[in-house]
Design a protein around this nucleic acid. Structure first.
Lengths: 123, 123, 123, 123
DNA sequence: GTGGTCTAGACCACC
DNA sequence: GTGGTCTAGACCACA
């Protein structure tokens, strides 16, 4: 797994897990890979994975069965969506709107850029 | 001045200065506050302000006259716009589109949220 | 069976067994459920039950007849009471008194909380 | 500093800090020792202290000023009391009452043991 | 086998 | 100087 350096590794792993849960690749209630497994998969120190898991457990997205491993919580996908949406609206969008105003970009232009990027991705 | 913890302080100060330049509060060619003045205004370590100035100087948005102080470059506003726009399109928007897809938010909804936030700000 | 996470599972099972002995639900001299039975009842790994039994055997609360199973010792109830009382006075109470002092709780209030919890349990 | 092995070191340090705050030894708003200072004082690895601080920050008992250090929150003492009290009532007391019933100890006897332990401590 | 804690030591960005 | 992240490796209790 490749990591951007603009964000901490353990959070990138957390995001990656969340995306897999949202996409249904990991089912709710299912057992996660063990800390050591995920560490060797991602080529990362087990402590770093441990940190990811601790974070996700705090967010109640996964939970722990002692001696067995970590499991995806029943309402994990819902929790993730709520969390991400809140983050999006409260922290991300204000900056977006500010930037749009600053750069004189309106929603039409935004949409146009979006269509272009979709075409570019389709190649 | 209040700072978000998601970004470094010196960059937040840089952004703040850029906004003031774009808004015409600080004129091109005009002398900036001194490092010490700005440090005491923003309740921040002078080194941190120094770092902001160094960054803006690298971007050629301000320039230094030795022994006198920092001055806003003649084409500062234009430079800022170009810089911000590039940053916006290349780094900000891809993440935006990804988030929108992940959270099932379309442009209509985006606009709706925007209108709401404008009302909230108007209070 | 539900387990608190503040204590190990095998000790919680041990406590549960002790309580049943004190309450006379399991008679002294009587044979215990087998490790496997208890494991499936409590939804727990047989090794964990085994650990409980080993612990209780160390305390001479139960004993083993090879090939037959575990049996409650004749003076089990007495042993448990002695053990628990010692544990209570030496390890539990000092912490209780410290907490009471720290939180400004006196015996009157303790009693009051007790009465309340009894009412709540009576529902 | 000496540590019991029945609890994790980082939590014992956290408790110790909380007690010092409650006792007024560390004032609210005051800066804490740095991670490295406290690590060398307590003869513990800096990472362990870091863990303590992270925990206390989550509990909003201390907060961080970037590049400067950790500071005691304004309502730290109140937060600690609330937290400890809740923990005491919900997790500690139920066990106490159960034990008292099991061991036939009433509040009079509890008080008597308390007075004794106070005398013993006074020596 | 599992997670959890701890140590030692490195490197980094930031103040 | 500050905290924060990461690695490597050890040890432990528990299932």
């Amino acid at each position: 797994m490749e990591f951007r350096k603009s964000q901490t590794i353990y959070m990138q792993i957390a995001d990656h897990i969340c995306e897999r849960i949202l996409a249904g690749i990991i089912q709710e209630g299912e057992r996660m890979e063990s800390v050591r497994e995920m560490a060797s998969q991602t080529q990362v120190n087990p402590n770093t994975v441990m940190r990811t898991f601790s974070f996700l457990q705090e967010q109640e997205i996964i939970f722990n069965k002692r001696g067995i491993g970590y499991f995806v919580a029943d309402d994990a996908a819902e929790k993730i969506k709520t969390m991400k949406r809140e983050e999006f609206v409260k922290e991300y969008l204000p900056e977006l709107f500010k930037m749009m105003q600053l750069l004189d970009i309106d929603f039409e232009e935004l949409k146009r850029i979006y269509e272009q990027s979709k075409k570019a991705a389709a190649k």
